[in-house]
């Protein structure tokens, strides 16, 4: 029983180990720890025990928070940018490999898939060896992009649970990347979130050369893409509004609000129903 206690065999002055025990330890069931601590001589009396416990729990919680938070949103920003870079470079190099490969080997192909095929060949000449080696780099880059994507998919829900649930982890990470982090995304008005990623179009509009963009990167979300072009502005506005709220909850409070998804679905369904209404009205005429 006593062995389970966080203070079992602990030197009361050893704050670091104490905090580690609070974080990593465990027990099947609770017990009267304060009394046990006094019995075993860990603490002089109950008050002394609670003083030790207070220090240990505060140290443990602070360390755990720092570790789990540690500006993970910035890491995500780097990861999603690196993912896009790897993918783009892989595709670009794959074109080179395809051009080179088709000049040397009979079966021509395209893209990363072709590079993958090439890696299985036995190079005969020095030139072949270089071509196959380059193909391996392409495949490795593409695999790195996959690994980065996996990292983004598991980490985004921890950093921004509501945003990730609403936007999907990859789009959520892209929004964080465009805004420069969770805090700055949380502080942006929803109209800005709506056109993040459409900066060229936005500035063209501000110069007076073009209509205002209806959506930026959030175009990739089903709520926008799945809506007919006439109503995409409305859908993008509704989506951006909910995404801004989600980012603010994630930054300022951190708890999970599943109702946001339901509200968004509801709103998008209403917007998409306009298309059906118009068709019906057309039939009546």
């Amino acid at each position: 029983m006593t062995d389970d206690a966080w203070f079992a065999g602990l030197d009361p002055a050893d704050r670091e180990t104490a905090a580690g025990r609070i974080r990593e330890g465990g027990a099947d069931s609770p017990a009267d720890w304060p009394a046990m601590a006094v019995e075993t001589g860990f603490a002089a009396d109950e008050g002394d025990y609670y003083d030790c416990l207070r220090e240990a729990t505060i140290d443990a919680a602070r360390a755990a928070v720092e570790e789990r938070e540690g500006a993970v949103d910035q890491q995500l920003v780097h990861a999603v940018r690196a993912m896009d870079d790897c993918r783009r470079q892989a595709n670009e190099l794959a074109e080179r490999v395809a051009e080179w490969g088709s000049s040397r080997f009979e079966s021509g192909g395209t893209g990363v898939e072709y590079a993958r095929e090439l890696t299985e060949r036995d190079p005969e000449t020095l030139g072949d060896r270089r071509a196959v080696s380059l193909a391996r780099r392409v495949v490795a880059l593409d695999e790195e992009a996959d690994a980065l994507k996996e990292y983004v998919e598991t980490t985004t829900p921890e950093v921004a649970p509501n945003l990730a649930a609403l936007a999907g982890p990859v789009l959520a990470a892209r929004l964080l990347s465009l805004a420069g982090g969770l805090e700055s995304l949380a502080k942006k008005p929803s109209g800005t979130v709506q056109v993040l990623g459409a900066e060229d179009a936005l500035f063209a509009h501000l110069r007076g050369d073009a209509p205002s963009p209806k959506h930026g990167i959030i175009y990739t979300h089903d709520a926008v893409r799945g809506t007919r072009p006439d109503d995409r502005g409305s859908a993008a506005r509704a989506l951006a509004g909910k995404l801004s709220i989600a980012a603010r909850i994630d930054h300022y409070s951190g708890d999970r609000r599943p109702e946001l998804e339901a509200e968004l679905d509801d709103r998008i369904a209403t917007i998409q129903a306009r298309a059906a209404d118009d068709t019906e009205a057309g039939d009546d005429e």
């Binding site: 025990r21 609070i22 465990g26 416990l53 729990t57 505060i58 789990r68």
Partner: peptide, 29 residues
């Protein structure tokens, strides 16, 4: 943590309430 710092008998635990075995070694009845 800020709230706990100002109080003598408030013990913060960064734990999952669905897994009591991860804090039963700290929390008394």
């Amino acid at each position: 943590l800020d709230v706990a710092e100002e109080r003598d008998r408030l013990f913060p635990l960064l734990k999952d309430a669905r897994k009591p075995e991860t804090y039963a070694h700290v929390v008394e009845p």
